[in-house]
């Protein structure tokens, strides 16, 4: 069973009597451990898809099963639990809280999952070590560079051990060098077995992922799966597809 199963999902907005189909009868599976890019020009519906998959929004039609839970039937409270426990977000504008220092920012998701102060501290330091920022723990977000801020955001996304990480244009606000470093960090995380979905409009960035889904007008226009072509640079023993080839 796939980690995320999307079946015939539509999202319809009504703008001044006009019906806008941001997503149109879209179906999709994402397996555990996959590194996937969702690409498409702006307005294609990729952000809407990410919001729905990330339980920030609910679909107008269709069903979504995330790790065995039907999220279109979940209550707002259940959705917030799912966001807290199973999903990590990385945003284009980092979205760190400027009043809190780096460590407190990373601790934030665990505050909402009700962990003790000591455990929060330990796990945050671990996550910061993973992104290489353990010596910046007491800095304010404003005192560190953009690339470092994005690393903090990634640490925050990781800290609750989510099933999947959504990254929305994670390099969009960074210069190409730091952007590459961030992408490298994602690849490293992917190698460690994490499920990551990268949302971007840039085909170059999408090129780092083995599987790419191109969205246009709310539909899947094209799918590229390097694994199917045997071009997967990261052998995945647990994946039955790779075992078959």
């Amino acid at each position: 069973m796939a980690l995320i199963e999307v079946r015939n999902v539509s999202k319809i907005y009504h703008l001044g009597g006009e019906e806008i189909r941001a997503l149109d009868d879209l179906s999709l599976d994402i397996d555990g451990g996959e590194f996937i890019a969702i690409i498409g020009p702006s307005g294609s519906g990729k952000s809407t898809l990410m919001h729905i998959l990330g339980c920030l929004d609910s679909p107008s039609k269709g069903t979504i099963r995330l790790d065995g839970t039907m999220i279109e039937k979940a209550t707002p409270h259940q959705l917030s639990r799912i966001r807290n426990q199973k999903i990590g977000f990385v945003f284009q504008f980092f979205n760190l809280l400027p009043k809190l220092n780096v460590l407190q920012n990373v601790e934030l998701p665990m505050i909402y999952s009700g962990l003790s102060g000591r455990e929060r501290r330990e796990r945050s330091m671990q996550a910061l070590k993973l992104v290489g920022l353990e010596n910046r723990a007491n800095h304010r977000p404003m005192q560190i560079s953009g690339g470092q801020q994005q690393r903090v955001a990634i640490a925050r996304a990781l800290v609750n051990n989510p099933k999947i990480i959504f990254a929305d244009e994670p390099t969009g606000n960074l210069d190409s060098n730091t952007g590459d470093a961030i992408l490298e960090l994602f690849r490293q995380l992917s190698r460690e077995g994490r499920t990551i979905a990268l949302v971007t409009h840039d085909p170059e960035i999408a090129a780092v992922t083995p599987r790419r889904i191109e969205i246009r007008d709310g539909k899947i226009a094209r799918q590229v799966d390097a694994r199917l072509a045997g071009l997967d640079r990261q052998p995945r023993l647990a994946n039955p597809l790779t075992q078959a080839t």
Partner: peptide, 9 residues
């Protein structure tokens, strides 16, 4: 931000 990382109502 707080809601996105799991704060409930």
């Amino acid at each position: 931000i707080r809601k996105a990382i799991g704060a409930s109502f």
